[in-house]
């Protein structure tokens, strides 16, 4: 392509690039921001709604499957096995089970860990 032809094209590109600010520029920015905010709010509602639905389904499944009574039985058995195992491995860990809270402290810690994982998961979904 001739140099002169390139000059013409560059001049045309410069003319296209030259654009004065439109009088309703601020209103346009506000419209775009409102749409962004709406999209953001809709996404939060969607995630929250999905979480609630998931929680309700999960809770109902737990109740329907009679899990709690089974968990209670399993818990007693597993606590007994765990205690005897730990005592065999580390007799000095007796304080853990013989303390004021005993085995409940372990279950409480496990529960807190699950809650923490849930919060992390929620945060990750929000980021996505």
């Amino acid at each position: 392509m001739a140099v002169a032809e390139l000059e013409v094209e560059r001049a045309l590109e410069r003319m296209f690039a030259r654009a004065t600010e439109l009088p309703d520029a601020d209103a346009f920015v506000n419209r775009v921001q409102r749409r962004l905010d709406r999209g953001w709010a809709a996404r939060r509602i969607l995630i929250g709604g999905a979480g609630v639905v998931g929680g309700v389904i999960g809770a109902s499944q737990l109740i329907m499957s009679n899990l709690f009574s089974r968990a209670e039985a399993a818990s007693s058995e597993s606590a007994r096995v765990l205690t005897s195992s730990v005592r065999q491995i580390a007799p000095q860990a007796d304080w853990l089970f013989n303390g004021p809270a005993g085995i409940e402290a372990i279950w409480l810690a496990a529960g807190l860990a699950v809650v923490a994982m849930g919060l992390v998961l929620t945060r990750i979904i929000e980021e996505i």
């Binding site: 690039a17 654009a19 520029a25 346009f28 775009v32 921001q33 962004l36 905010d37 953001w40």
Partner: peptide
């Protein structure tokens, strides 16, 4: 950061609309 993006819209909105 939607505010930062808003600044980009403020800077280039007119040029895009004019095009």
């Amino acid at each position: 950061d939607r505010q930062a993006f808003g600044e980009l819209v403020r800077r280039h909105g007119s040029a895009v609309r004019a095009l």
